[in-house]
Design a binder for these strands. Sequence first.
DNA 1: TCCTGACTTTTTTAACAAAACTATCAAAAA
DNA 2: TTTTTGATAGTTTTGTTAAAAAAGTCAGGA
Lengths: 205, 205
Amino acid sequence: MAAANDQQDIKREKILEASHQRFLHYGYSKTTMNEIAGDLSMSKALLYYYFPDKSQLYIAVMRKLAADYLKTLESRLDSFTNLKEAFTFQVNTHHEFIVNNYNFFDFFRLNEQNLPETIWQIVGEVHSAELNLLSNAIKIEVDKGAIKPVNNPEEIVDVLMDALHGIRVGAISQKKTNFPRKEHLEEIHTKKLLLLDIFIKGLMA
Amino acid sequence: MAAANDQQDIKREKILEASHQRFLHYGYSKTTMNEIAGDLSMSKALLYYYFPDKSQLYIAVMRKLAADYLKTLESRLDSFTNLKEAFTFQVNTHHEFIVNNYNFFDFFRLNEQNLPETIWQIVGEVHSAELNLLSNAIKIEVDKGAIKPVNNPEEIVDVLMDALHGIRVGAISQKKTNFPRKEHLEEIHTKKLLLLDIFIKGLMA
DNA sequence: TCCTGACTTTTTTAACAAAACTATCAAAAA
DNA sequence: TTTTTGATAGTTTTGTTAAAAAAGTCAGGA
């Protein structure tokens, strides 16, 4: 039983990896179940044995990416020495995450509206996990007496995250494309760090 | 000659007003030239006598709105007493502008990409005018010695404006609609003021 | 329990006709 | 000469249908 499940888990993992590669290079709609099956030298039917449908497969990949991302954040955010370091780490990690999985997200780009409910659930989970980690960072700094008391850390972090997100979007509307091109990502990253710098100073003031 | 042109200008103005109302209530694609003509009890052909085509008509309306908006900003931004007041005025004016012309902009919502070049030109002009006014406000404060010297005011304002814009967008992705609903506008406004507060403190630190 | 080939169902694409709308123009009205 | 219009030409959107492609199912084999 356990052995069988191990085998299953390994195969599931293989499928997730192959799917990730396909989705990463070709996006959701330009990836077919036949192609994924082909990459793994298995029949398409087998994919449906492991995953109920294509969107669930995509979501499973996404869930894994999100979990990895959050693990990276968590591993580090409970051991920072000051607030700026913590937030900078978040911005850098997020930047790296986007760069590495850039094409994966064209599902969002193309399908912008009417996405499956589950996707928004994952996005929401990631968002609130980030919000939690960062507002905790603020609380710790307040306890240490490093910054003056804040009555609602979650609200502050929420605003900051929206603002950071805005930097991304801002670079877009000027460039007339509704998603940042890879070339712009570095520029966006720099701007985010600038915003962060001012914002942190504002918190400490 | 002058009289004839006056008459023309008056009629042009009437057309712009009627068009504004239509675009405001029904958006670009759901407004037909026949309807505008009907509102003014004139033939559709006459519209084409005054404006070369539909998009030029829309753009003319937009240009007028933009001019009014900028005039409001300018009238006040050269006589503020401190930086926060200046920026708050910008945020409030912008908010009012969006609220008043909310539906007008569904041209952007629907047509998000492939908009006529001229529209981006106007958006760009408004943006750089705002950027100018606000970075000037910073320079004045620096000269007054109210805040510490800033090596690149334009860059700062640019980041702030992107961040403020991000507040708007942020409220969206959570709500699953790609443009803020009217109900959210107040919430967005409040968040913007909070961001502004922290940001300004950060500048003064 | 894991896996497949053959099959069914659903979605996408392409072609095309009908309808709606934009845009033009010759000629009337002012 | 300038302003206005009805009629109409041209273009885009919408709706329809058939073929192709992809998603998804299933009986049966290892």
